[in-house]
Amino acid sequence: MLLIKNLIYWLILATTLIALFPFMLAGALFPGGAHKMAQVWVAILNWSLKHVIGLKYTLIGAENIPDRPSIICSKHQSGWETLALQEIFPPQVYVAKRELFKIPFFGWGLKLVKTIGIDRSNRRESSELLMQQGLARKNEGYWIAIFPEGTRLPPGQRGKYKLGGARMAKMFEMDMVPVALNSGEFWPKNSFLKYPGEITVVVGKPIAHNSGDEAAMMAECENWIEARQAEITGRGPFAPKKAV
């Protein structure tokens, strides 16, 4: 039954992506039009995850979401958060690796919604693009979502938190909003199958862009996220095994 439900989910994903893509192209002719159509697609996928797969979530700390565009600094364990964060927060753009733009329909859609694409092999160029495109997106009223560890990591693992988010926060005068989650315990990295259950998402209080230097801000963000990770880890079928 789990396999059948996942096949239905993937069928919904593929067919709606192709069906909605022409509307995204048309929407690109109007300010914010492509983004609105992309949100329709994301809403369909979030609905499918909840009602077809049975993968739901509980949100803690919704009252901490500020009323002005900020930088979302989230833990990254699976593809789930790239969808759910768009439901939890106001309209946003992501920072993603440029290679994704080459994927038919999906990658083209990323470009249409003004995803900030970076080349991980060229740090200098990536930093410059991050600042240029990030400022442009802020001026358009978008939030910016980043994964400070740079890549998806299995539950229980901790990567190196990069300073890009704090650097943008200071340059653009946007506060940072830390987010902890345990999605990888239900949707493992690169897994075809997603498993039913309830993901926990915790949103922290904003870290003011003028609260310290870049290193201090990112350290505060990292410490908060990892402390919450320790509290919510161990609830899904792919939770890390505890030491005996």
Score class of each variant (00 low, 15 high):
Gly79Ser: 14
Leu25Lys: 09
Gly204Pro: 06
Val52Phe: 07
Gly117Leu: 02
Cys221Thr: 12
Thr233Arg: 11
Arg68Ala: 06
Phe172Tyr: 04
Ile12Leu: 13
Pro237Arg: 08
Ser70Lys: 00
Val42Lys: 05
Ala34Asp: 05
Met131Val: 13
Arg158Ala: 13
Lys114Thr: 01
Leu29Asp: 06
Pro90Glu: 03
Ile72Met: 04
Ala38Gln: 11
Asn6Trp: 03
Val95His: 02
Leu153Asn: 00
Met131Gly: 01
Gln157Ile: 04
Ser70Met: 04
Leu112Cys: 07
Ala169Pro: 00
Met218Phe: 10
Leu85Gly: 04
Gly107Gln: 03
Leu110Thr: 07
Arg158Asp: 13
Ile8Gly: 09
Ala34Ser: 13
Met176Glu: 01
Ile60Gly: 12
Gly165Glu: 06
Ala26Phe: 14
Ala26Tyr: 12
Glu140Arg: 06
Met218Arg: 08
Trp80Pro: 00
Asp119Leu: 06
Leu29Glu: 08
Pro206Val: 03
Lys138Thr: 01
Glu149Ile: 03
Lys75Phe: 04
Ala43Tyr: 04
Trp80Leu: 10
Phe101Met: 03
Val244Met: 14
Asn190Ala: 13
Met24Gln: 14
Ala227Trp: 00
Leu83Cys: 08
Ala219Leu: 15
Phe147Asp: 07
Ile71Gln: 02
Lys114Glu: 13
Glu87Thr: 13
Lys162Tyr: 12
Glu198Thr: 14
Gln39Arg: 13
Val202Gln: 15
Phe23Leu: 14
Val93Gln: 05
Arg68Lys: 12
Gly61Ser: 11
Lys242His: 13
Asn190Leu: 11
Leu2Ser: 12
Gln157Arg: 09
His76Asn: 00
Leu55Trp: 07
Trp41Ala: 10
Ala34Lys: 06
Val52Met: 05
Ile207Asp: 01
Arg68Cys: 01
Lys102Glu: 05
Trp187His: 04
Asn182Pro: 03
Asp119Met: 05
Arg120Ala: 10
Ile144Gly: 03
